[in-house]
């Protein structure tokens, strides 16, 4: 059990401007784009919840949050 097992990646689509920074720097390449060019989680199984997407998202649109 890891410290972040009860967390997951949350995406606030309405704030995403599709700049691609999170997609580019994701160390596991689990992020991609939806039909509108906004960020989408493509492979949550392989996400290591490192939080690099959150720390470099200029629009606070992607972050680690508690599982609902």
């Amino acid at each position: 059990m890891g410290a972040r097992d009860n967390q997951e990646i949350k995406i606030k689509k309405e704030w995403c401007k599709g700049c691609g920074i999170c997609v580019t720097f994701c160390p596991k390449q689990v992020l991609g784009y939806d039909d509108e060019g906004k960020v989408a989680m493509l492979d949550s199984e392989n996400c290591i919840k490192c939080g690099q997407c959150e720390m470099r998202c200029p629009d606070f649109a992607i972050f680690l949050g508690g599982k609902e």
Binding site: E14, W15, K17, G18, C19, G20, I21, M55, R56, C57, P58, D59, F60
Partner: peptide
């Protein structure tokens, strides 16, 4: 943050939001 003022007006990919967070 002042939630009423978000999202901010900076361009897509502008680094300013990263520093503000």
């Amino acid at each position: 943050f002042r939630m009423d003022n978000l999202p901010h007006i900076w361009c897509p990919g502008c680094g300013n939001g990263i520093i503000m967070l």
